[in-house]
Every structure is written in structure tokens, then in C-alpha cells.
């Protein structure tokens, strides 16, 4: 097999772009207590999220909730490995990720 026939891996953004979301423009389903994050030394949310919903930007956690795949990992990771700053709700009925294959 030649190198040319090898497709490069898709970027995460390209992958998320393949997915279907019904975005709730009115409200985020993820609440973050930013004061707790300031004192958090581990910030597992920045690593664990498969959609990189959480990014450290301008001294605080920016939350791109619209990309959330709704796995719930952030809640578990933050509760135990962080400061318990994240409250992950399920998105409003019918909103959020809608897998075509699953």
C-alpha cells in the first residue's frame, strides 16, 4: 500500500461535523462553577471529554456545550479527579446529539 492511498485521520472538528445535533440555542445543559475551577490543579475535564467541550481560555473554562456527545464522562471525572465544579444535565427534551447509527 502506498502512502498516498492512506487517508489522513480526520480532525476532531471534522469528526464532530459529521454528527447530527439539534442545538438548543436557548440554554446550555452544562453548568460550571468557575470559582472552583480556579483552584483546580488537575482539570480532568480538559483531557477526558471526547469532544473537547472544555477548553482553558482566558483564565477560565470555556464550554462548547453544543458539541457535547452526552457521554457523561466530564461529570464523573470532575466529581472525583477535579473540584466538583461541573453540573451536567441532560439537554432539554429532544435536543442535543442525535446519532444516526449509534
Amino acid at each position: 500500500m502506498t502512502a498516498a492511498s492512506q487517508k489522513p485521520q480526520l480532525s476532531l472538528d471534522a469528526r464532530l461535523g459529521l454528527d447530527r445535533y439539534e442545538i438548543d440555542a436557548e440554554q446550555s445543559h452544562i453548568a460550571v462553577d468557575h470559582d472552583k475551577c480556579k483552584t483546580c490543579t488537575t482539570r480532568p475535564c480538559l483531557v477526558c471529554c471526547p469532544a473537547i467541550v472544555y477548553r482553558w481560555t482566558d483564565e477560565r473554562v470555556a464550554v462548547a456545550y453544543e458539541n457535547c456527545l452526552e457521554c457523561g464522562t466530564c461529570q464523573i471525572a470532575c466529581d472525583h479527579g477535579g473540584r466538583g465544579a461541573i453540573t451536567w444535565h441532560i439537554p432539554a427534551g429532544g435536543f442535543g446529539i442525535a446519532f444516526r447509527y449509534g
Binding site: K7, L10, D19, C71, T73, I97, F99, Y101
Partner: peptide
């Protein structure tokens, strides 16, 4: 996916969905 064994099994395929679940 970059491991040679896996690469051979998925080559030429088109990713159509990315998902996650606990």
C-alpha cells in the same frame, strides 16, 4: 486506528459518525 493491523481493516472506509458513551 493507525496500528498497521487496524489500518488494513478500515482502509478506504469513510467515517460517517463519531460517538461516545460511558
Amino acid at each position: 486506528k493507525a496500528h498497521p493491523l487496524v489500518q488494513r481493516l478500515v482502509r478506504g472506509g469513510e467515517v460517517v459518525e463519531y460517538s461516545a458513551q460511558t
